[in-house]
């Protein structure tokens, strides 16, 4: 059993944009807080850029190299003035196919989101571009992350994509904590953790019979029967 003081993570407080040497000390399992500008991006943004081939009206390269797969809750206090009380990440694995080009084209150092991607994506897309993946924690931490948001600097494609999918440029201070899921070595914390858990977890299946009827995915191919 670990004592209480061992339960703290190593914490880093970084100001954007960061250099390669700034992020080199980050290791999986460290906690990170960010200061500067962070922009949101999820289905809508990636679809506009990669499927509809449009460039955002805001030059992403000037924003500091940190993006979060998320959408905030937003209140329009007066026309064109927005307040963002809370924000939480959304699952990033769905956007893995865009990472190679996205990270390179927009010089992204921090991809923030929920739950990470595979180490294969980290090795082929993140590591070559000097990018790391930070996972939001718990995933329902809207109020804590909201406290790190100072204001909305800009918003793109609000009419086209709606409030939930628009690209929000947020001014942040002590925005976090995020946990380093993929560091500059391209390792995945989640994959390491899965390896540690699997032996114990799989033992729970012992003595449980197979299902009477199988499902697609449990048979070799679609030409087999599920009985």
């Amino acid at each position: 059993m670990e004592s209480k003081d061992q339960k703290m993570l190593r914490e880093f407080n970084l100001t954007l944009p960061v250099s390669a040497s700034d992020i080199a000390p980050l290791k999986v399992g460290d906690a990170v807080f960010l200061n500067g500008l962070v922009f949101t991006g999820r289905e809508g943004l990636y679809d506009m850029i990669f499927e509809k081939k449009k460039e955002p009206p805001i030059d992403i390269r000037t924003l500091g190299g940190a993006t979060i797969n998320a959408s905030p809750t937003v209140r329009e206090t007066e026309p064109g003035v927005y307040h963002v009380p809370s924000i939480t990440g959304t699952a990033s694995f769905r956007f893995a196919k865009y990472m190679s080009e996205f990270l390179k084209r927009y010089k992204i150092r921090f991809l923030i989101g929920k739950g990470g991607m595979s180490s294969e994506v980290y090795k082929t897309c993140f590591q070559p571009n000097g990018a790391v993946y930070l996972t939001t924690i718990g995933y329902g931490m809207g109020a804590v992350y909201g406290r790190g948001i100072l204001g909305v600097k800009d918003v793109a494609w609000k009419e086209e994509l709606g409030l939930a999918q628009a690209m929000w440029v947020l001014e942040v201070e002590n925005f976090g904590p995020f946990i380093v899921e993929c560091d500059t070595q391209g390792a995945s914390l989640f994959e390491q953790v899965n390896d540690e858990i699997n032996d114990k977890f799989l033992r729970l299946y012992e003595d449980l019979p197979k299902f009477a009827m199988k499902r697609m995915g449990e048979i070799g191919s679609a030409k087999e029967e599920i009985m």
Partner: peptide
């Protein structure tokens, strides 16, 4: 924080 700040606990 959500209760104190009166904001949605999850966005």
């Amino acid at each position: 924080a959500a209760t104190k700040d009166r904001v949605a606990m999850c966005a």
